[in-house]
Nucleic acid binder design. Sequence first.
DNA 1: CGCTACGTTGAGAACAATCAACCCCGGTGG
DNA 2: CCACCGGGGTTGATTGTTCTCAACGTAGCG
Lengths: 255, 255
Amino acid sequence: MQGKGKDFWADSPGDALQQAKSRENLVGSPCAACPVRPLSICSGLSIDELSDLEKIVTNIDVKAGAPIFDEGEAATHRYNVTSGCVRIYKLLGDGRRQIFGFLFPGDFLGLAIEDEYAYSAEAVVTSHLCRFPQRDLEGLISRYPALEKRLLGVTKHELAIAQDLMVLLGRKSAEEKVVTMLLTLSKRAQHRGQSENPVFLPMTRMDLGDYLGLTTETVSRTMTQLKTKGVIHLERDRYISLIDMEKLNEMAEGF
Amino acid sequence: MQGKGKDFWADSPGDALQQAKSRENLVGSPCAACPVRPLSICSGLSIDELSDLEKIVTNIDVKAGAPIFDEGEAATHRYNVTSGCVRIYKLLGDGRRQIFGFLFPGDFLGLAIEDEYAYSAEAVVTSHLCRFPQRDLEGLISRYPALEKRLLGVTKHELAIAQDLMVLLGRKSAEEKVVTMLLTLSKRAQHRGQSENPVFLPMTRMDLGDYLGLTTETVSRTMTQLKTKGVIHLERDRYISLIDMEKLNEMAEGF
DNA sequence: CGCTACGTTGAGAACAATCAACCCCGGTGG
DNA sequence: CCACCGGGGTTGATTGTTCTCAACGTAGCG
């Protein structure tokens, strides 16, 4: 459904990791130098405690379109995105797909129900992730209760995001859906300290459709309508400029 | 949106609570006798520890259609349903509503983001709930870490349910939506030890529509179609018999 | 240089929404 | 006691948004 290694637009391909690596000698700890740590679950640990985390972490590299794990698999690991973009989704028997979210640097994934992954995860573009063995992570949690608090916080946050997506899927029009998505991605990019106005969309129209409960054609048509209305502008290389923010904010909630 | 006190079909109106009360003298602890405890978050505590829980709990009584809390309010309490049915939802600016779920005895509600309720909650029929002040609950959690584990488990479970609902909202047809809902309510009733074959639907068609991302008319039409196909039968007093379970299970996933 | 994935656009079909009428039933008040 | 009222549910006719099917352009990539 994705496939070829077309990853030249991966957002800062491995930068986070490489920067961390290059600073390793300086600080003696890649995690301490990790640029996404403040955004991630790892902020539940102090600089000293991080060394315990480093003992159990592996850095992995996932090519564009490659799977990270599949729904129903034994949930042996948890992950943290450090660069790139990951989609999490579920499939129906006949292949229909619902994407729950696109994960960016700092985002956590791998929450399991009864030791099985509850959804599938794939890299949208070539991405880097930190991988923690679940067994070791449990040990760490029992030693550092702050981690469990942080895990609960992350899960609650995911639930809130899921609820907003349910409102979108159940009660918004195609136009409202697309505009809401653009604004959400913009805000999240800002939160990570990346470009929030030309919004970067690493995923395909099909991904967007499977996220918004629409077909690719409807996503495409809606984009052109928004362009015609003058509220957005489609730049090259998957960047979209948000022209009339006020109007867009109104459109997202249907006025 | 609901209103009149038409609660004669509240499922065992207050039974759970009344039974608990009547056994109070016997066991000296209403929580220990609580029939929904094994289903609820309270199962994270031993019988002895329950007395600490009892010190902070209040039993409340909510009339059909009455609010429990509203989205954005200061989240001062957490709740546990002991009898009846509660709907949780969010509204858009123009009044469109998305219901995230119907909560039954044993279900927990009140999860907050930054000390504000993330959604609104109302009683579908006259219901009884246990209410815990958040401050006191936090104290209890710090004393009994098992409670935090249980809370994380409950939240993860909610997230899994939310993901299934997202698949339904984004990718299923009206018929698949209605059938999935009937099967889900049946399974949950069974889990609580209530009738799973004539399924009981305490909520209105409008509630169901706002849950499934449909209008009341479409819910109604779809029900009659299912009846015509002979896979369900509409009994009186909001009970629905599931006739052809095999067919229904197929229909829920679209074959 | 052709293949394939992706994106856009068009025409027509289909599914669900909308608008509207009607029934049933329980509550209320004359 | 009965008539009225209003909420909930069902059904019908029509509209409209989104999907489906199809064609075509473009850009990487082998």
